[in-house]
């Protein structure tokens, strides 16, 4: 464990908690893409299947459980508890355009052709694109509440910190996970445009982020 990975995991946890509390307290999921949240729940489900077969550390197990519980709870809030406020009309990204290529690629590019390894690879590729429905929804509605932008900031920051973690691990222990690194770079690049808007609009300007 290094400071970059710990900061990344904390940033990821903060993002997930920000979103959950925003929906829970405001009793509304307006402006939130339910599709992205379903994809994130799918990412955790397909990645953490080794939860009960491999014990790495208490931290690892606890964080996996927290991510799984919070992501499913968020999906529950959106599609069940506060489904009246779910903006399905603007949450119109065709997720099959993500799932098909990601599934195909996971079968082509993986470390081993075993169910667990293919599902892990699927989760890595899917995580890189899972935020697309949410970013698409923001461009469609033309704005995002400030809390939603803070959620996206910490979510984007988490994988950027993981990139630093991989640089650190490469230089200190020769660790290099090509699939995770390439996918992590792609994932972080998708946030660049948002990061620019976040700094110029939200941090400096008004609380809301309204797109041009």
């Amino acid at each position: 464990m290094n400071i970059f990975r710990l900061a990344g995991d904390v940033s990821h946890l903060v993002a997930i908690i920000i979103l959950f509390l925003k929906i829970w307290k405001s009793k509304s999921c307006a402006g939130i893409s339910g599709k992205s949240q379903v994809l994130f729940a799918l990412v955790f489900t397909s990645r953490y299947l080794d939860l009960f077969t491999v014990f790495i550390s208490a931290y690892n197990t606890i964080m996996k459980l927290v991510f799984l519980v919070l992501s499913y709870a968020t999906v529950y809030l959106i599609y069940m508890r506060f489904r009246g406020s779910y903006d399905s009309e603007n949450d119109s990204f065709r997720v099959e355009f993500l799932l098909v290529p990601v599934t195909g690629l996971a079968f082509l590019e993986n470390y081993a052709f075993t169910p667990l390894e293919i599902l892990w690879t699927f989760s890595i590729f899917l995580e890189a694109v899972a935020i697309m429905p949410q970013l698409f929804m923001i461009t469609k509605t033309g704005e995002a509440e400030s809390i939603t932008t803070h959620y996206l900031f910490f979510l984007g920051l988490y994988r950027a910190l993981y990139l630093a973690n991989w640089v650190w691990r490469y230089h200190t222990e020769g660790f290099f996970d090509q699939i995770a690194v390439v996918s992590g770079v792609v994932q972080t690049i998708f946030y660049c445009d948002f990061f620019y808007l976040y700094v110029t609009r939200v941090l400096r300007g008004s609380g809301k982020m309204s797109l041009p």
Partner: peptide, 10 residues
């Protein structure tokens, strides 16, 4: 098939 790395990351 590369050596199976420990999946110690989240």
């Amino acid at each position: 098939e590369e050596d199976m790395k420990p999946k110690d990351e989240l």
